[in-house]
Every structure is written in structure tokens, then in C-alpha cells.
Design a protein around this nucleic acid. Structure first.
Length: 599
RNA sequence: GCGCCGGUAGCUCAGUUGGAUAGAGCAUCGGAUUUCUAAUCCGAAUGUCGUGGGUUCGAGUCCCGCCCGGCGUACCA
């Protein structure tokens, strides 16, 4: 199913052709209902180019516009706006085209998969395996998961990559510390269990900073690790596995999954990357690849060659070692050449813009990646503590991600308990088990929703009160809206999935028309977010939909559903309820948020 | 110093490739209520879109200067 805006745009574009001024139809949703549902702003800009009067051109476009049955007769307003109002009949027709839902995860609410799917890599979460997941990993995990779900829904082939930090100097330290404190485990690394990874890291770090002998030992361990010493590798591997188990526990709770391909995976690839760069450098001594201050660099931009220009990308350090940039070069080539990606999305904090502004131009400059490959740094701002301060990664332990989740769930439980009193009928008081489950879903949903409803690049302050508020643009509100719609089906004694497919959806009342328009806007929203990857556009849409539903269902400004005046009207409205519920559920699922039948 | 990002209602934030009178929510005030789950609905009030110029039919949006805040700036990831 095409979005309304696309359907109208096509027709306006055809009219523009016929008038002899082909171009962008510039169809937008109208901000103000007095200007209709949609408006085309093409007459003004086209008139400018063609040297015509905007209003006259608008009249000519309207004359050629084949929109009968879709819109009311168009109106021309202001300097040359063409205002379009969709007819209720057309809304009914479009809604009727949406196939019934079977209640499964496959429900597409009538939205077709993308015509030409591509392979997309989403690089997300990327924790350092030396420590536990920290609150700082929340955003990349939640946003990355949502972006992946959005692209999957759109029909693309999504590869979720968790580029975990499982390599580097700190692992020498950790292995050495393990050998000293638990030699028996070092002999049998399979039995490795570390309850508190964070504490273990802090101990090792302290020892490293204070004990010279240990420091030497740690460094020797790094060398042994890098040279592939089997015993050291076994301990290292066991440590990484144990660390991954800690991560997975949290990932499971969050409903998150991704392929683990750590930095260590790229060891060989990094050697090849550097060799390739050296070969290119020798073939083109005056090219962008040069040795500078002992390091193998890529001067990816003319400005980097200037004395005070931005620093070049360093592909190999002057001591011969590799760094983050080397591994990203290796990862890109792997993703393009081996995985076949044509779009790579890095869900990484905004403080790393400079890094990607080196890596992306570099791979293009040296000709490794063509223009057909899209590289995106989906940068996000920090989640700040309620105090307004940045969570610190350095002072270990205090800000474990799991603690944050537990606190949110505990708070959600209090909210659910508080509203569980004085209920009757379908909303009767719940058992402890039910409340536990609801609290988990609501608490985690609240964290995710609060994160995703902010614009990506802005920083936001964690505010548990707002996050779990029952009013406003929050997860509890959205979940409640869903539960409420579902309850209507139960109350009416029908299963939404069993509503007769041929029963027409008739929209007449203003609240029905508003709800129909909101429902049909979903297709356009999916198009937009598939392109721009802004989850907050989706949360805003879902909130609008929930509000449209509240009005539709309101007994003052809305209509009666269960006790509608006729059976046909009742069926029609129940189908609107069903479509609302399905859209909310599909939309929330794209955010990685579960729904509840009761709350 | 240079570079990047931000500054929109009392608060938290939206604002779609430049579109009409700049929007939500929260908080505030007023109204609705014997409910289809009121976790709702209706209404009111609130703005020099940091600031000064420029581009044009039209600027929160694009360009230039300045002020304020955050972040990054050659071998950590």
C-alpha cells in the first residue's frame, strides 16, 4: 500500500507534466485543517522558474489534476497553495485495502516491503568486554535495535553487528590478574566464572597502576596474546566468553540480539588492510597515503596536508601497532566485500563524529568504497544523569546498566500497583505474577521509549518521573492506549482477527476521519524513518495516533463503538479499533517495545 | 586557535529537502463526569525561534558576523 502523500504526489506530478512544468510536486501535510489535509506548494516555485504568475499556474495545474474521487475539488489559496481534502469515501477505500491481521509478528498493516531491498549492516551496542555494560551503552543498544527493526520491517536484509571490544592492552592486564589471583582457573579456563566483572577490572587496574612487576607482567601477557600463545589465548577467550554471558543476560532482558564480531575477528584483516595501503602508497608516492612521523597515514582531504589542517587517519601507529582506525577500515572492507552491504549504519555517540569524518572520506579517497555504498554515522547525544551531569565511564562500577534497568522496573511496579486498586470487571486486580510481568515490560519499555522519543543528536536528562508518567508522550501512556483498544474487542465479545473481511469501513464523523487519516499516515512515516532513521519521528506518530484514538473513543467528541446505532457501523468502528491496535503494536515493536493486553 | 553540534513557551522537547497565524506534552487556570478502562476529553494563557545583517513572493529552516553552552582536536577505543 502506498502512502496517501505518495498517491497524491503522483497525480500532481502528472498534472505538472501536462502543464509543461515537470518537477517536484512538493506535496506536504497541511499544518492547519482549514487548508485541507494536504497541500501542494509546487505552483510558486514552478512559476518562478517559468516566469509565470503563481496563482494562474496553480489554476492550470488544478485544471489538469486528475484527483476525482480522491479529494474534494482543490482550492487555490494565498500566493498559490493548492489545498487538498481527501474524501471520506477514499479514506474508506484505502482502509479497506488493508488485509486483516492474523495477530502474528508478521503483521504488516497493509504496508508492502521495499521494492528493492538492500543489505544493511547496523553496527551497534559495541561494549568493551573488559567491563560490564554501563549506562553509556544503553543508547547505542536501544537505538541500534530500533533502527534494525525499522529496516527489517521495511523489508531490507539487515545484519546486526556488535563490534565488541575484545582486544587490546587491557586484556593483558586482566589475564595477568587472573593468573595471579586464581591460578587454578588459569589452568582450566573453562571453569571461569566472575561474578562482578567491574570489580575485577578495578582490582586489575589498581594493581597495574601501583605494582611495577605486575605492570611488566601485564605487558608481556599482551605480547603473548598478540603472538598467539595458546595458553594465553585460552584464558583470554574464556574471559571474553564469560563477559559475553554478562552482556547476554542484559541483552535478553532488552530483547536485543546481534552478531558478535569483536575486534579480534579483524586481526588478519587488519594486516591485509595495512599491506594494501602500503602497496597503494608505493604505486602512488604522491598520493594521499604517506608515512608521517613514523605512522602510516591517509591524508583523506586536501586540508589535512596543510600545516594546521585536521589530523590524518592513522592506519598503523609509529610503533607498528594497530588502532581503532585500522580496525574500522578492516570492518568496512569486510562488510562490503564479504557481507555484501550497500548501506552501513554506525550507531555511535556524537563525540565520535571526527573519527567517522576521517574513516568515511578515507575509504572513498583511496577507492576502496564506491559511491553506491552509503556510510552513515547515526550520531546520538548522551543520556545525562538526573543531576544533569554526564555519566562517567571512568570511575568504575557505579553506573551499571543493569542497575538502571532494575530501578526502572521497581518504579514501574509501584506505578502499576498504584493503579491496580479500585479496578473492576476486565481491569480487575491482578496477581503478583501478573504485576511482576507488567512491571518488567512497562519499566523497560519506559526506558526505551524515553530514549527513542528524543531527537538523536540532542542530549537528554534521565527523568524517572516523566519517563514513567501515565500522561503525555511516554511508554506507559502508549501501552495503556493499546491495552484499552484491545479491551474493546473483549468487551464487544469479538476477536478482532475474526471480523468479516468484506465488512466496509465507513468514516463519516470528524473523529473517524481524523483517526482514518492518522492510520493511513503510517505508511508515510515508515518511508520517512527508513530513510532518515529517526526513531523519535515514529514515537511522535504513535502518540498522535493514540491521541486520535482517544478522541474517536471519547463519548463527548467521539463516537459510540460497541453500542453503535447499527450493526454495520459497529463493525466498521471495531475494524478501526483493530487497525489502531495493530498499528500501535507494530509501531511499538519497531521501537523494541512489547505490548500488554491488560495493564 | 581550528573544527563539529546545539541555543524554540515557566519546564522537557518537536518542527519533515524554505511554505500560510511557529507546535506538542508537563506544569497553571477554567469546564465536562452517575464511563465503551477518566491513565480521558474540551477550552484558556504563555514566544523579539540566542543576537545582528543578508538571500526572496516567503526564513526557526539557507548564507555571513557576533554572544553563550557542549564536544572533539596525530598515533585510547
Amino acid at each position: 500500500m502506498k502512502s496517501l502523500i505518495d498517491r497524491i504526489s503522483e497525480r500532481v506530478a502528472q498534472a505538472l507534466e501536462r502543464v509543461g512544468v515537470p518537477g517536484d510536486p512538493i506535496v506536504r501535510e497541511s499544518q492547519n485543517p482549514q487548508f485541507g489535509h494536504f497541500q501542494s506548494n509546487c505552483a510558486m516555485s514552478a512559476a518562478k522558474k517559468a516566469g509565470k504568475r503563481p496563482r494562474e499556474l496553480a489554476a492550470a495545474i488544478v485544471k489538469e489534476l486528475d484527483i476525482e474521487g480522491v479529494c474534494e475539488p482543490p482550492e487555490i489559496a494565498g500566493p498559490g497553495f493548492i489545498n487538498l481534502r481527501i474524501t471520506p469515501e477514499y479514506l474508506s477505500k484505502c482502509l479497506g485495502e488493508i488485509p486483516p491481521g492474523d495477530g502474528s509478528c508478521e503483521d504488516r498493516v497493509g504496508i508492502d516491503p521495499h521494492k528493492s531491498p538492500v543489505t544493511v549492516v547496523v553496527d551497534m551496542s559495541s561494549p568493551n568486554l573488559a567491563k560490564e555494560l554501563h549506562v553509556g551503552h544503553l543508547r547505542s543498544t536501544v537505538i541500534g535495535d530500533s533502527v534494525a527493526r525499522i529496516l527489517e520491517f521495511a523489508g531490507h536484509n539487515v545484519i546486526r553487528e556488535n563490534h565488541v571490544g575484545d582486544w587490546g592492552t587491557q586484556f593483558g592486564m586482566l589475564v595477568a590478574h587472573l593468573r595471579r589471583t586464581r591460578p587454578e582457573i588459569a589452568e582450566n579456563p573453562r571453569d571461569l566464572v566472575i561474578k562482578d566483572l567491574e570489580a575485577f577490572y578495578v582490582e586489575a587496574k589498581n594493581r597495574f597502576d601501583t605494582d611495577e612487576d605486575f605492570k611488566r607482567e601485564a605487558r608481556e601477557t599482551v605480547v603473548a596474546l598478540q603472538q598467539g600463545d595458546p595458553k594465553t589465548r585460552n584464558i583470554w577467550r574464556a574471559f571474553c566468553d564469560e563477559s559475553m554471558r554478562h552482556c547476554n543476560h542484559i541483552y535478553d532482558r532488552l530483547g536485543f540480539r546481534a552478531e558478535y564480531r569483536g575486534e579480534s575477528y579483524y586481526n588478519d584483516e587488519m594486516r591485509r588492510v595495512v599491506a594494501r595501503l602500503e602497496a597503494q602508497m608505493q604505486a602512488d608516492p604522491d598520493g594521499p597515503i604517506r608515512i608521517s612521523q613514523g605512522a602510516l597515514c591517509v591524508f583523506f582531504d586536501e586540508k589535512t596536508l596543510e600545516p594546521d589542517g585536521p589530523p590524518p587517519l592513522i592506519a598503523r601507529k609509529s610503533d607498528g601497532g594497530f588502532n581503532y582506525e585500522t580496525s574500522d577500515l578492516a570492518a568496512i572492507t569486510h562488510r562490503v566485500d564479504t557481507l555484501g552491504a550497500t548501506r552501513i549504519i554506525y550507531v555511535v555517540g556524537v563525540e565520535q563524529v571526527a573519527h567517522f569524518k576521517k574513516v568515511f572520506p578515507t575509504v572513498r579517497r583511496i577507492g576502496w568504497i564506491g559511491p553506491e555504498i552509503e556510510l552513515v554515522h547515526l550520531a546520538f547525544g548522551n543520556m545525562l544523569a538526573p543531576s544533569g551531569k554526564k555519566y562517567s565511564t571512568r570511575d568504575g562500577g557505579a553506573d551499571k546498566l543493569e542497575t538502571l534497568l532494575d530501578e526502572a522496573v521497581a518504579r514501574a511496579r509501584r506505578v502499576v500497583e498504584g493503579t491496580n486498586e479500585g479496578r473492576s470487571g476486565d481491569a480487575a486486580p491482578m496477581t503478583e505474577e501478573e504485576i511482576d510481568r507488567i512491571a518488567e515490560v512497562v519499566g523497560l519499555g519506559a526506558i526505551k521509549y524515553f530514549d527513542l522519543c528524543h531527537a538523536l543528536t540532542s542530549h537528554y536528562k534521565l527523568d524517572p518521573d516523566i519517563m514513567l508518567s501515565l500522561d503525555g508522550n511516554t511508554a506507559p501512556y502508549m501501552m495503556y492506549a493499546y491495552a484499552r483498544v484491545r479491551a474493546i474487542g473483549r468487551k464487544a465479545g469479538v476477536r478482532f482477527g475474526d471480523l468479516p473481511a468484506d465488512a466496509p469501513i465507513i468514516v463519516q464523523h470528524p473523529s473517524e476521519i481524523a483517526l482514518a487519516l492518522a492510520l493511513l499516515r503510517f505508511a508515510a512515516v515508515v518511508d520517512t524513518i527508513t530513510r532518515d532513521l529517526h526513531p523519535n519521528v515514529l514515537t511522535e506518530y504513535l502518540y498522535d495516533l493514540a491521541k486520535a484514538f482517544s478522541r474517536f473513543y471519547d463519548r463527548k467528541v467521539g463516537v459510540r463503538v460497541i453500542d453503535a446505532s447499527s450493526e454495520a457501523t459497529k463493525l466498521s468502528r471495531l475494524k478501526l479499533c483493530d487497525l489502531t491496535a495493530r498499528t500501535l503494536r507494530v509501531g511499538l515493536r519497531m521501537l523494541g517495545i512489547e505490548t500488554l493486553e491488560k495493564m
